[in-house]
Design a protein around this nucleic acid. Structure first.
Lengths: 193, 193
DNA sequence: AAACTCTATTGACCTGGGTTAAGCCTATTT
DNA sequence: AAATAGGCTTAACCCAGGTCAATAGAGTTT
């Protein structure tokens, strides 16, 4: 159950067996069925979750009632409404399983305790957040300076696994374009642009 | 010189005098004149900088030669090309002073050493990055689901200080809209939308 | 296998905001 | 104080991509 988990953490910091055993006590394994919610907008996000197997997506519904996918989380990714998790304010996103999924969850109280008992986890999450930060930065730049077609091409290049596993209308939503537009883009690309 | 600096850090973690003295040895004070570059696209970003006084902006030039402002940094904010700073790859952004500015800089080697000598700084930066992460997330959601006018109104609400200190065309660039559009939006708002 | 439900495609039409270009106003610079 | 530059506004025009609507598989349910 913890294979993917420890291997991902050890890409960033090293852990000894004692630390691993302590970590295991803080995380709760959970299985989600396809289409099952992990979090609903308006609830407080009590857990930060690591995907061991499967696929999650998070999305928000805007003031006009439109859904926008914010992020997908494959094996080895974390998912949560970070703001809600750390402040206990209401979540602004929904998290849903796109496939049957196995996760490891930690509550915010446990998170606090974990960083005190295994301080190197502050370092792990510092590195994790700093990496996500620059990925988001790139996405933000891309959302402003690229055309819909350029965004799609970049997405396919950097997320080949998702293209296989996620329906096309969800990729459109993630890219912030209409599904009809994505369909036309694919046609253009097939015709050699 | 370190007043704003320590007060900001101590909003997130507490430091004793010994830790403060150690930290002081890692940071280099520097003064920048208005319009002076702190970093240019293509160079490696050697420093992470904290703004004690003044105002920085970072921007990138896209494939089409268009400039996009990514972020402003007022007193109490950090600025750098995080990715370049941590990986030593070439920076994709420029950082420039919009006013005469005083900063505290730390090199990446010093950063590493600092986190080893004062491990609570891993925690400080974990919290800092996690907060920036959710701010970026919000901006990304906003860039997709709001109209140009809504984006501007939100910006004014959440950044009143910047509206005073930054020229309008730069705010337009930050919001990803044409300066002409922003001018029209302000007119609309003045006319009661 | 018929009835639903989801997803993708295609066409016709429309609009928010980009582009181009001109003119104006306020600071700097010389 | 004249010249130059940077910033702001306005108008005319245009287009990438959104919206609406119809059609058609592909997968599920009864």
């Amino acid at each position: 159950m913890f294979e993917v988990f420890f291997s991902h953490i050890q890409e960033k910091v090293s852990l000894n067996e004692v630390q691993k055993d302590i970590l295991k006590t803080f995380f709760i394994p959970k299985k989600l069925r396809k289409k099952q919610y992990l979090l609903q907008q308006g609830d407080v996000c009590k857990y930060l979750s690591f995907v061991e197997k499967g696929l999650l997506m998070s999305y928000n519904v805007d003031d006009k009632g439109l859904e926008h996918i914010n992020m997908f989380a494959l094996e080895g990714w974390w998912s949560s409404d970070i703001h809600s998790f750390f402040t206990h304010e209401n979540a602004v996103i929904n998290i849903e399983a796109l496939e049957d999924t196995e996760i490891l969850m930690i509550s915010s109280e446990s998170f606090e305790e974990m960083t005190l008992k295994v301080p190197i986890m502050d370092r792990y999450f510092r590195i994790l957040f700093q990496n996500s930060l620059f990925t988001k930065e790139r996405r933000l730049i891309s959302s402003i300076s690229h055309t819909a077609q350029e965004k799609y091409i970049k997405f396919v290049e950097s997320n080949p696994a998702l293209v296989q596993r996620v329906p096309q209308n969800m990729i459109a939503s993630y890219l912030g374009i209409a599904p009809e537009t994505l369909s036309r883009i694919k046609k253009n690309i097939a015709l050699g642009k």
